[in-house]
Design a protein around this nucleic acid. Structure first.
Length: 864
RNA sequence: GCGGAGGUGGCGAAAUUGGCAGACGCACCAGCUUGAGGUGCUGGCGCCGCGAGGCAUAGGGGUUCAAGUCCCCUCCUCCGCACCA
């Protein structure tokens, strides 16, 4: 770097070469901001309109990554922009701090999870502050601390009281690496969402479930209200909920096999095809199959094989391509519509956890059934013919399988001749009337299993008493504190079970000896309502005060990664609806507008330790500064797209910030008497052009903040303004008079205008580069909090062009550009175009057929 | 297979309503500045062509005076879902 022993170059009054030193500036302002924690505090007694901007809270892994930086840079820019626009902004941050990594770290480093987690939080908070994010830290929420998780427990008791929390023995997804149960949502292609190489196993366990399915219909319906959410996320949730209307139909086995009874209930969306059913197919784990194999060893062997095939396919994440196998059970079941007895099969492609685990097989009108029937030689019976305006075509036999709904029933008894749609209605009604079935709705969405056999989570506040059974802990006894000294292993089973002081308690009902529940809650419980707690973070009487929620909610803008499109966001919506039904909140939905930012990638791939392409925010901040790091994450791509991190790109931003700084260094002269002087007369020439560019830039940046959030184009607009100003200043310095401060040579940019440009560049950059901008603000002699400085307004009259360039095309090809007054009439533009020499050359000797004049845009002369 | 997003210079991208394709930045080239540069500044920079000019927005067709933008077909990339009965 600079060598100190060299002679200092002679001072040049109008060119100050002091370099932009991000570290010095950012250090200075970090210290100032540190000393005023109320800087970003939301107002207690607001008279201004509110704006709640929220970014997804991080898991405290120990260090921020670039994805966080991008997420928070977007949110911070928005929050600062809204502050400057006079809103009462709530912009909080917290820590999603329960979860498995803390336990893994505990095992690896022999550090207690709490210590590890709180240490990470402290470190990451330092990073966040260094990056200059404007959070109201007085509202910080840390989910692993009792003052937060006690309300998880409180909510659990409320859920239990209202029948929304229940216990059930069930097949569960078990991750052998996590040693715990996973919710359906946490299984990705048969693998654990945290360990993409680890197949999920099926185990049978007693689990606590939350009845999210009670809200399935509303969760689906209200998606329509969420017009501020990305279409993509709404569709993903819609598919996840998976509502499907259909019919349940009972097929009678004609005698029981075992405890599961003698009725096979199938679920179908196409009851209209039931006269074409030529078999019934059961899932290998269907209770009736269980009964059957209990007394038939030969069948048992075959069914077990089907179960194994199905499990293997599920674990490989490729159940969709399983090769269909099945076995005939030797039994027949009666189709209640036509009394026909059809063979009962067991097949590996039938899933026990969807519908009823049993289907009727209609080979003529279902692809899968068709494939299966062909393979095993089952009858294929056509019962729907395509309908068409052409009567001959209607009677033609379709290519099989014919699966669409635009058909007419045939060979279907009294229903023959009906359209598919009518038939479904009438046939469902008949089933209900005769008592062998009914119309129904099934959902793909399952109840939310929240039990985790892990230590580092919220203890479930329930007690098991030999006398009274399952008993909830009394509300006054909350919180159930998670004990500190717990031996953690991955040996399986809940670590809390090995802590007698925790395990052994007394029954809240009878006072006798009892055992505590030792499972803990899924961490998605924590994140389902944390953003409500921000509104009233220190309440120790309730999770929050409903009046405060009524003021702050719904969240005006939520920003985060699309990877939470289903899990976190559907649970949060559920939690809100439950709290609304409790009377705690009035809003139906937690989030008005959702924004999902793109990933940060490097060299075309997601950053990962395996690929060695991870960019560390700390390193970027150290090398280029927080402002450059933040600005680059906004500049490199529009925020909804993936961002390819390029080292040379951030260097460009650093250079830009340096140019901004020098622009102030070279021209800022607040002590000059003209500094604040109003412009005395309308500007002309170069000065007018700079003034126009300034107002146009304010408009462009404002429009981008209001609308589509293309911060990349905001930044380029500001770059253009600076380039323009610098170009106009070029060559002026010789004639610059320190006495008057005016730049007099040639272009004549009045100092007052220059000061205005300077102030506005600072204001426009304020949401994106807070450190530099505060320094500039001070350099231009401004005092007071920049957040309270009003966002600049542009004057449309000053932004307006007085002359515009009109491209002139001949037969659609650009031939010339003419300059006309901005208000020129169509005819004036046309005349100017036709008078242009290049145009005349291009149309010489040809016949003008037509002249299209688009005012303010272009002229196109059509010739022949 | 179904659904969604996307494909524009050497690279990241811009073009917001059908109206000059490539703003802004990176890289590169030339010049200036500097004792020196991983500095600063100025200019150049889609492709072909000496030039006039021609050709260019994944590919093909269409609508239009005019298409990156609208319509049809095909290809490719990424994301989500996937025997859901």
């Amino acid at each position: 770097m600079a060598q100190e022993d060299k002679p200092i170059p002679p001072a040049r009054p109008e060119r100050n070469d002091e370099r932009y030193d991000a570290q010095r500036i950012e250090q200075k302002w970090t210290e100032r901001w540190q000393s005023d924690p109320s800087l970003y505090a939301a107002e207690a007694h607001p008279t201004k309109p509110k704006y709640y901007v929220l970014e997804m809270l991080p898991y405290p892994s120990g260090a921020l990554h670039m994805g966080h930086v991008r997420n928070y840079s977007i949110g911070d820019a928005l929050a600062r922009y809204m502050w400057m626009n006079g809103y009462n902004v709530l912009h909080p941050m917290g820590w999603d701090s329960f979860g498995l990594p803390a336990e893994n770290a505990a095992i690896k480093n022999n550090t207690p999870p709490k210590e590890w987690t709180l240490g990470n939080i402290a470190a990451m908070k330092v990073q966040m502050k260094r990056l200059g994010f404007a959070y109201d830290w007085s509202r910080e929420v840390t989910t692993c601390l009792p003052d937060y998780y006690r309300w998880n427990q409180w909510f659990f008791l409320k859920l239990y009281e209202s029948g929304l929390a229940y216990r059930k023995k069930s097949k569960v997804n078990w991750c052998p690496v996590c040693c715990t149960v996973l919710a359906n949502e946490q299984v990705v292609g048969g693998m654990c969402w945290r360990h993409e190489d680890t197949p999920v196993e099926q185990r049978e366990l007693e689990q606590w479930f939350l009845r999210i399915t009670k809200y399935a219909d509303e969760l689906l319906r209200d998606l329509e209200k969420l017009s501020g959410w990305p279409e993509k996320v709404r569709i993903m949730q819609q598919n996840w909920i998976g509502r499907s209307e259909g019919t349940l139909v009972d097929f009678d086995l004609g005698g029981t096999v075992g405890p599961a009874g003698s009725t096979i209930t199938v679920f179908t969306t196409r009851v209209d095809t039931i006269y074409g059913a030529t078999s019934v197919q059961l899932a290998p784990e269907h209770p009736i199959v269980v009964d059957m194999i209990a007394r038939d060893a030969e069948l048992r062997v075959k069914v077990n094989e089907l179960i194994a095939e199905q499990r293997r396919a599920k674990e490989a994440g490729d159940i969709g391509n399983i090769e269909k196998h099945g076995v005939f059970t030797g039994r027949y079941a009666k189709n209640p519509y036509n009394g026909e007895a059809v063979p009962v099969w067991v097949a590996n492609y039938i899933l026990m956890d969807y519908g009823t685990g049993a289907i009727m097989s209609v080979p003529a009108h279902d692809e899968r059934d068709y494939e299966f029937a062909k393979k095993y030689g089952l009858e294929i019976r056509l019962v729907i013919l395509p309908s068409s305006s052409d009567p001959e075509e209607t009677m033609a036999e379709p290519a099989l399988p014919f699966t669409t709904m635009d058909g007419i029933l045939v060979n279907s008894g009294e229903f023959s001749g009906l359209s598919c749609e009518d038939a479904i209605t009438k046939m469902s009604a008949l089933a209900e009337e005769k008592g062998f079935g009914k119309a129904t709705v099934t959902f793909r969405l399952k109840d939310w299993g929240i039990s985790r056999q892990r230590y580092w989570g919220t203890p479930i506040p329930m007690v098991y008493c030999d006398k009274d059974g399952v008993v909830p802990v009394a509300e006054k006894d909350l919180p159930i504190i998670l004990p500190d000294k717990v031996p953690i292993t991955l040996a399986g089973g809940s670590p809390l079970a090995s802590v007698p002081a925790f395990l052994n308690t007394t029954c809240p009902k009878c006072g006798g000896p009892a055992r505590r529940e030792t499972d803990t809650m899924d961490t998605f419980v924590d994140s389902s309502w944390y953003f409500y707690r921000y509104a009233d973070a220190h309440n120790d009487k309730a999770p929050f005060d409903s009046d405060k929620i009524a003021y702050w909610f719904p969240i005006d803008q939520y920003i985060g990664g699309v990877e939470h499109a289903i899990l976190h966001l559907i649970y949060s919506r559920f939690w809100t609806k439950f709290m609304r039904d409790m009377g705690l909140v009035k809003n139906d939905e937690p989030v008005k507008r959702l924004f999902t930012q793109g990933m940060v990638i490097k060299d075309g791939a997601k950053m990962s330790k395996n690929l060695g392409n991870v960019v560390s925010p700390d390193e970027m901040v150290e090398r280029y500064g927080a402002d450059a790091t933040r600005m680059y994450s906004l500049f490199a791509a529009p925020p909804d797209r993936d961002l390819d991190w390029q080292e040379s790109g951030i260097e460009g931003i650093q250079r830009f910030l340096g140019r901004v700084y020098r622009f102030y260094e070279n021209h800022a002269k607040p002590q000059d008497p003209d500094w604040r002087a109003p412009l005395s007369a309308p500007l002309t020439g170069s000065a007018r052009r700079l003034q126009r560019k300034l107002h146009q830039t304010i408009k462009r940046v404002t429009d981008d903040f209001q609308g589509r959030w293309h911060f990349n184009t905001c930044i380029s607009a500001i770059m253009e303004l600076l380039n323009d100003a610098n170009r106009r200043m070029l060559g002026s310095e010789d004639a610059q008079s320190p006495a008057t401060g005016a730049l007099v040579k040639g272009d004549e940019i009045p100092l007052t205008l220059l000061a205005e440009v300077q102030r506005n560049i600072a204001l426009l950059l304020a949401p994106m580069a807070p450190y530099l901008v505060h320094e500039l603000w001070e350099m231009t002699g401004e005092t007071g909090n920049l957040l309270k400085a009003p966002w600049p307004k542009y004057d449309p009259a000053l932004a307006a062009e007085d002359e515009i360039e009109i491209p002139v095309q001949v037969n659609g090809k650009l031939r010339s550009v003419v300059v006309v007054p901005a208000g020129a009439s169509e005819d004036q533009i046309k005349q100017a175009a036709l008078a242009d020499e290049k145009v005349r050359a291009a149309i010489a000797g040809k016949q003008v057929v037509k002249v299209i004049v688009v005012p303010k845009k272009l002229v196109n002369i059509v010739v022949r």
